[in-house]
Write a protein that binds this DNA or RNA. Sequence first.
DNA 1: AATCCACAGGAAGTGCTGGGCG
DNA 2: CGCCCAGCACTTCCTGTGGATT
Length: 413
Amino acid sequence: MELVEIAVDDKLDVIFSRFKNAKIYANREILLPDYVPEELPHRDNQIIELATVLAPALSGSKPPNVFIYGLTGTGKTAVTKYVLRKLVVKAEGTVLTAYINCRQSNTNYRVLAELSSSVGKPVPFTGLSTAEVLNRFIRGLERQAKIMIAVLDEIDWLVKSSGDSVLYHLTRLNSELKRSRLSVIGITNDLRFMEYIDPRIKSGLGEEELVFPPYTNKELEDILRKRAEKAFRKGAIEDGVIPLCAAIAAKQNGDCRLALDLLLKAADLAEREDSSKVTEEHVRRAQRELEKNLVVAAVKTMPLHVKLVLLAVYLLEKEGVLKNITTGEIYGRYRDLCREIGVGEVTQRRVSEILNELDMLGVINARVVSLGRYGRTKIIKLAVGEKSLLEGFRSDPGFYTMVGSIINSRPSS
DNA sequence: AATCCACAGGAAGTGCTGGGCG
DNA sequence: CGCCCAGCACTTCCTGTGGATT
């Protein structure tokens, strides 16, 4: 007993002191995803544009609603937060802001609930009607008598899962407000977003539009260098590390968040194994681990049938008989699986929807094609490595006991 | 030029859960 | 307590469609 405790104690000591005497980091926080740096290199144009558009708020008039497009990791969120932060300071209490991530708050109710609590009127997280929550928000905002700028990040998730009725209300809210004003900043990485919303909202929401181009390889490298300078100790990273991170991210549509994640993860790996330098090898391992984490996290929260559909895709791809896997083939395979483990099947309509969900999660690539005489369908490919996926399936023990034998019974047939 | 496949994907509804409100 | 509400996973029924083949 005594011995064990001492042993654990020793280990803790080693772990803690390793971080206390960090060899790699000077300040790890600088690499965290929600850190907004003091300057945002290569986004000057966007910062100035957005600031120009929002500036009227400082003289007490309502800024236009803004729509921001750009692929993931092009700095949309960072620029918006950055400009708003400066604006709020300048406004000295006359401007109110709210930031809502619609991927987390992906229902009308939740968006309104967050807006309401940011004007000092918290509401229960369920139970009320949306109309009631909207009313409370309006009352709260009126009492504040301020200009409010609400940021709806990843707004496409809200519209896809709950429709655009909240947007409709929010964009025409100003006619009901006497003492306050509301401006909406919508952010999306879906460039076709405007196509599937109501034209009445479209005109209201898209008064101003900003487009964020992807970062180039060079720009990414530059950004990483600036961050790394503050985040790491001198000489803690090998020369090739930053170019490699940048190059990997540049391939992924210039995704800066990915570049930063890679660097952070690679440095964490190096730190954890007590090495004195981050190497390119660390970056490569970080890349694999990031993908694995993404998949494991995604698979963990999936409902049973979503997992089964994903498994069907996996098996079809692994068996490799068919190259272009279609919805119909997946549905067939999925039904076999259901029979094998004795659970009820869902309809093909639902499976089609599930495939769209998996596509949005980035686990598969699905795209609709017409095969002429042979109909119209989606062709589907896995977008992640088999190993990551297997890890994902294994991370849910209940699921794995059901299907483990099926997965393993076909090593390579 | 017309046909027709194999689905896509919209609309509306069901049954269930988990939570108000008066 | 009874009633109302939203969200979810899913169903049923449906209309729409790109383009190779007839």
